[in-house]
Nucleic acid binder design. Structure first.
Lengths: 189, 189
DNA sequence: GTCTATAACACGATAGAC
DNA sequence: GTCTATCGTGTTATAGAC
C-alpha cells in the first residue's frame, strides 16, 4: 500500500467536499478545517484551489480515455463493447466516487485546462456513438436514434457516483450485470 | 400572452446563469449585468439571492409532484404509467430547460426550503418504485432490481435539460417515442 | 509543515437620492 | 425602478516566524 502524500490527502478531502457542495461553494477554509489545519498551510502543498480541481478532473478523464482506448482496440461485437463500457464506468466510479462528482458538475470551472477536458470528453462520446452505429449497421442493435442511446447510457453511467455509495451491499459484478440488463436488454417482457 | 413582471424576468435570467455556472458561482453583479442594470436595483424586486433559487426549484418540483399525482391516479398498466412519466419529463423539461439545471444541481444550496424539497423528491421516487414493483408483480416488467430500473430511468430523464436544447430540430413526440424505446424496450434485437 | 497576520479584492445586501 | 455610495464580511493567496 502506497504512502499517501500530504498533497494527495488534500486533494482527496477536497473531492469529498466538492461532491457535497460543488467547487465554488467550498472555501479553502472549509478544506483546511476538514484537514484539521489552517487555510494558509494548504499552500505549502498546493499552488491554488484551481490546481486541485484540475488534478481531480484531468486524472479521471484520462482514466476513461485509456479505458475506452482498450475497448475500441478489441475485436468483439458492439453489444459486447457496450457491456465493457458499462463495466469500465462501474470500476472507475467505485474507486473514485467523489472525483466523479467534480468531473460531472464542476468541469466548467476549469480555467486553463477546460479546452483539453472538452476535447477528451468529445472524443469519448464519439467513440461510443461509433460503437452504437456499427451495432445498428450489422443488426446487433435496434434502429433507434444512436444519439439517444448514447445519451441514455452515458447519463446513467455518469450518475453512478450518486448511487454506488448508497448500495455498498450490492457487489460490483451484480451491479454491472443489472445495468447491462436495464440499459441493453430493456425492462419489458 | 401574459405580461412578464420584472421579478419574473430576473428569475428567468438567473436560471439561465445558474445553468451555466451553478448557483454559487453566479454573483448578483453577474445577474444585474445580464439584465442591464446595477446589482442594487435587483433588490427592489427580490429579497435575496436565496429567494431566487427557492422560487426556481420549488415551482418546478411542484410541477413534477402534480404530474405524478395525475399518473398514479389513472387506471392503466405499469408500462403505460412509465411511458407517461417519460412524457411528463420531456414536457416539463422542454418548457423549463434552465430551471431543470438548478433543480438537479443546486438543491443543496437551499437554506429554508431544503427539507421540503427533499420530501417532494423522496415521494416522487417512491411513486416510481411502486409502479415498477407493481409491473414486476404482474409480469409486465422483467425481474430486475427495481431500484436500478428507477435509477437508470430517472437519471436519464433528469439529464434531459442538457440534451433538449441541442436537439431543437427533433420534435417532442419523436423524442418521447425514442426514449420509451431505449428505456423500456431495450436496444438489442 | 503549520502558524499568525494581513494584503487585495469580491461578495450580498442596505441607505438614500433621483 | 434605477442609481451611487458604502457597510460588513468572506474570499484566495502571500510573507515571514517557528
Amino acid at each position: 500500500m502506497k504512502q499517501e502524500t500530504r498533497k494527495e490527502e488534500i486533494i482527496k478531502t477536497a473531492a469529498k467536499l466538492f461532491k457535497e457542495k460543488g467547487y465554488s461553494a467550498v472555501t479553502m477554509r472549509d478544506l483546511a478545517t476538514d484537514m484539521g489545519i489552517k487555510a494558509a498551510s494548504l499552500y505549502n502543498h498546493i499552488d491554488s484551489k484551481q490546481e486541485i480541481l484540475k488534478v481531480i478532473i484531468i486524472s479521471i478523464a484520462k482514466e476513461f480515455t485509456d479505458g475506452m482506448h482498450n475497448i475500441t482496440q478489441t475485436e468483439s461485437s458492439s453489444i459486447s463493447k457496450l457491456k465493457k463500457i458499462v463495466a469500465l464506468h462501474v470500476k472507475i466510479t467505485a474507486n473514485n466516487t467523489n472525483d466523479m462528482a467534480s468531473l460531472n458538475n464542476d468541469w466548467m470551472h476549469l480555467e486553463e485546462h477546460l479546452e483539453y477536458y472538452l476535447k477528451l470528453r468529445n472524443e469519448y462520446e464519439t467513440s461510443v456513438i461509433s460503437i452504437i452505429k456499427a451495432g445498428i449497421a450489422n443488426s446487433e442493435i435496434k434502429k433507434t436514434n444512436p444519439e439517444i442511446i448514447m445519451f441514455s447510457m452515458l447519463t446513467t453511467l455518469r450518475s453512478l457516483y450518486l448511487w454506488i455509495p448508497k448500495k455498498e451491499d450490492l457487489d460490483r459484478n451484480e451491479l454491472t450485470h443489472s445495468l447491462n440488463q436495464v440499459l441493453i436488454e430493456g425492462i419489458n417482457i
